[in-house]
Design a protein around this nucleic acid. Structure first.
Length: 435
RNA sequence: GGCCCCAUCGUCUAACGGUUAGGACAUCACGUUUUCAAUGUGAGAACCAGAGUUCGAUUCUCUGUGGGGUCACCA
């Protein structure tokens, strides 16, 4: 009879959710779900000085936004009594002792609790890396608590993993070298050893560990949320850092990941976080959305008074929502007043001067003037024969330029429809006079 | 520096010891298109090095090299 699988994600509330943390949380979540197990969120706030409630709130909010729902929630600071009883037991049993310390730094205590290191070789049976053998001798008698009721990380982790019945410790590789001392503590308190899986690191472009200090805010999930990336895209992208399904499939919903994820296929080497690929995923997910979903999802990034006719254009162009602003002042700015432009820009690159262009503009105006149905389809039908006859660029470029005043923009038929007949004719007439 | 982990295109990666070393992102070219984007087609691009095992090593072993992590009264 196998025990129920319980995994945990155990961040410390001393900062924002790290993008590597997102991947760790995801894998722990996936593993729990695919084994009908439970996923625990444990806030590791044993460092009272650095831990802040606001970070805890942020962490919970981020995880919820991603859709990584936890079944169990624990705050280590709520468990000091339990930790305390273990510390006492360890001291009583001779596994730990109160150590007098020389105070060399300010704030340092003259008395801490150290673990009596049995100085032995420990073998970690890592699910990803296989057997890792470490001699704990060089660890010395390490500190496990600041005082009787202030455990530090290594102690609290072991006790809580044990008491919570954690079966699989899935965490980043940076913890691999912490594992031996945690195993020592486990053995001292008589706790069974969970299965370990140390995930390869998520790396920065320079192949060093992504850190706030070195790489700034771009390592935080918040950064990507604010940029207007979708949670589905982030999860999908991050899932494929250090893991692959062994097939060519790249797009995975969370449910599909639960089905397909395989801890045995997790990579050993660190992997670089490549934003360009994230952009690609995000675009794919935007494409998949309906117009309604898109508008709702991008709501915060879309100005309230925007013409709804621009929405499909935005949805089609954008990789992430933060680009909407750029679009509105750039390619889609035709919706505002027409900017001034140099009249030479009106002519197609194959024309020598503006003589033909002026004539063409006149022809376009004449055609559109008598057009009643001012939809992009009918505008196109009306103008197209002219374009065929005179040359597409000769007709369409000046028309588009006259309407947008920009080198880059959507096609002239769409612009004309959005502007409406009156404004379209106004801009074309202006160009005609101007040319 | 000690200890530990790792090593396939620029990036993420695939490949029961035998493959023209595959895919995706990115890049470039061409096609389509009035521009941009999108899209279609195609191209370039990798087995860290040296020994060993083997009929045969990207794949197994060892060594070297390189990269990374960790060495707190932080987690």
């Amino acid at each position: 009879m196998n025990k129920q699988v319980i995994t945990r994600f155990a961040p410390s509330p001393t900062g924002f959710l790290h993008i590597g943390g997102v991947r760790t949380a995801l894998f722990a979540f996936l593993f729990a779900r695919q084994n009908n197990g439970k996923f625990a969120l444990r806030i590791e706030d044993t460092d009272k000085l650095r831990s802040k409630e606001e970070w805890t709130i942020g962490l919970i909010d981020d995880l919820a936004w991603l859709g990584l729902k936890h079944d169990i929630f624990v705050k280590q600071s709520d468990r000091v009594e339990i930790h305390k009883s273990y510390i006492k037991k360890l001291i009583d049993s001779g596994h730990a002792y109160i150590s007098k310390e020389k105070v060399v730094e300010e704030g340092q205590r003259d008395e801490v609790i150290r673990f009596k290191n049995p100085n032995k070789k420990v073998t970690i049976n890592d699910l990803i890396r296989g057997d890792v053998i470490v001699d704990t001798t060089d660890l010395g008698d390490f500190v496990i608590a600041r005082s009787i009721d202030e455990p530090i990380y290594h102690l609290a982790v072991v006790i809580d993993d044990f008491e919570m019945g954690i079966t699989h410790v899935i965490r980043a590789e940076e913890h691999l070298s912490n594992t031996p001392r945690q195993i020592l503590i486990q053995e001292a308190i008589g706790a069974p050893r969970p299965l370990y899986a140390h995930l390869p690191l998520v790396l920065a472009e320079d192949r060093s560990k992504l850190s706030k200090r070195k790489h700034g805010e771009t390592v935080s999930l918040t950064y990507y949320r604010n940029k207007g990336y979708l949670p589905e895209a982030i999860l999908n992208f991050v899932a494929l850092i250090g893991w692959n399904p062994g097939t060519d499939q790249e797009i995975f919903s969370l449910d599909e990941l639960v089905k397909t994820f395989d801890l045995n296929k997790v990579q050993k080497g660190g992997a670089v976080f490549n934003v360009e690929k994230l952009d690609w995923f995000n675009k794919k997910y935007i494409e998949k959305m309906s117009m309604e979903e898109f508008v709702k999802s991008a709501q915060k990034f879309i100005p309230e008074n925007i013409s709804s006719k621009l929405l499909p254009l935005i949805k089609e162009k954008v990789n992430k929502y933060s680009e909407i602003t750029d679009l509105l002042v750039g390619e889609l700015s035709f919706i505002n007043d027409l900017p001034e432009y140099p009249k030479e820009e009106l002519k197609w690159k194959q024309e020598k001067d503006l003589i033909n262009t002026k004539e063409y503009l006149k022809l376009i105006i004449e055609k559109l003037n008598i057009l009643e149905d001012f939809s992009k389809e009918s505008i196109k039908i009306t103008v197209w024969p002219l374009a065929e006859e005179k040359g597409k660029g000769n007709i369409l470029w000046p028309m588009r330029y006259a309407l947008s005043g920009k080198e880059k923009s959507p096609d002239p038929f769409i612009i004309a429809e959005i502007l409406g007949k009156e404004e379209t004719l106004k801009r074309l007439s202006y160009a005609h006079r101007y040319a």
